[in-house]
Design a protein around this nucleic acid. Structure first.
Length: 277
DNA sequence: GTTTAACCCTGCACGC
DNA sequence: TGCGTGCAGGGTTAAA
């Protein structure tokens, strides 16, 4: 399930591999994936003939800028991935959109659970796009300073995990990385954000930066039964370095106390009862 | 302002 | 072996 590090890995791959290429043709096999558009034609016409100039990221959204003044916006949802192929490779099940380049080769959008989506928007109207307008600052961006983080955390009465995962306040963090950040900071998921000391806020800020950077460095997380891969089909390796997520019953890497799993809302949260307070 | 629950969909485990 | 049922999984959003 792609979060900031996984999406950033793909962004870097796309930036390296697709900038300067011209889109020849687009095929939509499952209209649900482009559900923001009235029909397939509106989507494919907006892309055909355009050259890719830049690949950006806003939270978990990928933004592929085009020389036509438009932007192809992509969200991977829970099981989505993008594959770069020569076009000769057989088409995998759950391939919903294919973008062909005029120089040969193509991008395939593959998504088993169909929670992902693609749409095209005008570049100068991006801030008005509902899906993007609420996305907060990027936690790895230069302007996301400790002071900014401190203000977000201490001015609200939210449980830390809710706060970390809320895209309105901090962008790009999901279930896996929130558990890892809280473990690294030694803080419980259900601590009220306004109860943190300034030292704890600083610890959480540092943990957030380090965990996300490490995630990117190790190519993101690919779980056993999940489908995350980079642009070339390579799996991530950060799952081997996880300290909390998915480690129910295994000893905490700090204090040896077994990691517990709790239902939190309608999903799992993993933490150490002993050293997260 | 904050929390909760439903929804989106497929694959898989399970019981019969 | 085949069928039906129930549920996991995460992000978003509407409702409480």
């Amino acid at each position: 399930m792609p979060e900031l590090p996984e999406v950033e890995v793909i962004r870097r791959d796309l930036e390296r591999d697709t900038v300067g290429k011209r889109i020849k043709d687009v095929q939509v096999k499952l209209p649900r994936i482009i559900r923001r558009h009235k029909n397939k034609k509106e989507f494919t016409d907006a892309l055909a003939g355009a050259k890719i100039t830049k690949v950006d990221r806003r939270g978990k959204y990928l933004l592929m800028h085009l020389d036509s003044g438009r932007v192809l916006v992509m969200h991977l949802g829970m099981s989505g991935r993008i594959e770069r192929t020569t076009g000769r490779k057989s088409v995998e099940k759950h391939t919903h959109v294919v973008i062909k380049f005029s120089t040969g080769g193509e991008l395939r959008f593959i998504d088993m659970r169909q929670f992902g989506e693609l749409f095209v928007a005008a570049e100068d109207g991006l801030d008005g796009v509902k899906e993007l307008s609420h996305i907060a600052l990027d936690p790895l961006g230069d302007s996301f300073t400790w002071q900014v983080f401190s203000e977000i955390v201490s001015s609200r009465k939210m449980k830390l995990k809710s706060l970390l995962m809320d895209q309105k306040f901090i962008s790009g963090i999901g279930n896996i990385y929130s558990d890892e950040i809280l473990w690294a900071a030694g803080l419980r998921h259900d601590r009220q954000s306004d109860s943190l000391t300034s030292q704890e806020v600083r610890r959480m800020y540092r943990a957030m930066q380090e965990v996300l950077q490490e995630g990117i460095r190790h190519g993101g997380v690919t779980l056993e039964d999940e489908t995350y891969r980079n642009l070339y089909g390579k799996t991530g390796e950060f799952q081997q370095h996880l300290k909390a997520y998915g480690r129910e019953g295994e000893p905490c890497r700090r204090c040896r106390t077994p990691i517990v799993r709790e239902r939190w809302g309608n999903r799992s949260t993993y933490f150490c009862r002993q050293c997260q307070v």
